[in-house]
Amino acid sequence: MDPTITTPSIDETPLSASPTDRRDSLEKHLQTRPDMQDLKDRHILLDTNVAPSLQAAHQELARQRTTDSLKKHLEHRPDREELVERNILPTTHAAPALQANARELEKHMLVDHLDHKIQSRPNPEDLISQGILTEDEDPRFPVV
Rank of each mutant, 00 (worst) to 15 (best):
L61V: 05
P90G: 10
L54A: 07
L39N: 03
A57T: 08
H116M: 06
L30T: 05
T92N: 02
L54W: 03
S129Q: 15
P78Y: 01
H113A: 15
H76S: 11
N101Q: 13
L26F: 08
N101F: 08
E27F: 09
M109V: 06
D126M: 11
S25R: 02
D35L: 03
Q55D: 03
D35G: 12
A56T: 10
D112R: 10
A62N: 05
A95H: 15
D38R: 12
R63C: 04
K117D: 09
D47N: 14
V50A: 07
L74T: 08
K72S: 13
A102W: 09
R121P: 02
H29M: 13
L70M: 12
L45A: 03
D47R: 05
Q55M: 13
E81G: 04
M109I: 06
K72D: 13
A17C: 01
T134C: 01
L114I: 10
T67P: 02
P122E: 13
E85R: 14
L45D: 01
H113T: 11
Q55H: 07
L30Q: 06
A97V: 13
Q64Y: 04
L46W: 06
K28G: 08
D68A: 11
H58G: 02
A17I: 09
S129I: 06
A95Q: 12
P34N: 03
R80T: 13
P19N: 09
S18M: 11
H58M: 01
N49K: 13
S25K: 00
P52F: 09
V111Y: 06
R23I: 12
I132Y: 06
S25Y: 00
K40N: 03
E75G: 04
R65G: 08
R22E: 07
R63I: 08
H58L: 01
L105D: 11
I128Q: 01
T134W: 02
D68I: 09
E125S: 09
P52I: 09
A100N: 05
K40H: 01
T48H: 00
E104W: 10
A95I: 02
D47I: 01
E81D: 15
P52S: 05
Q119T: 10
R80C: 03
K28L: 10
E75W: 03
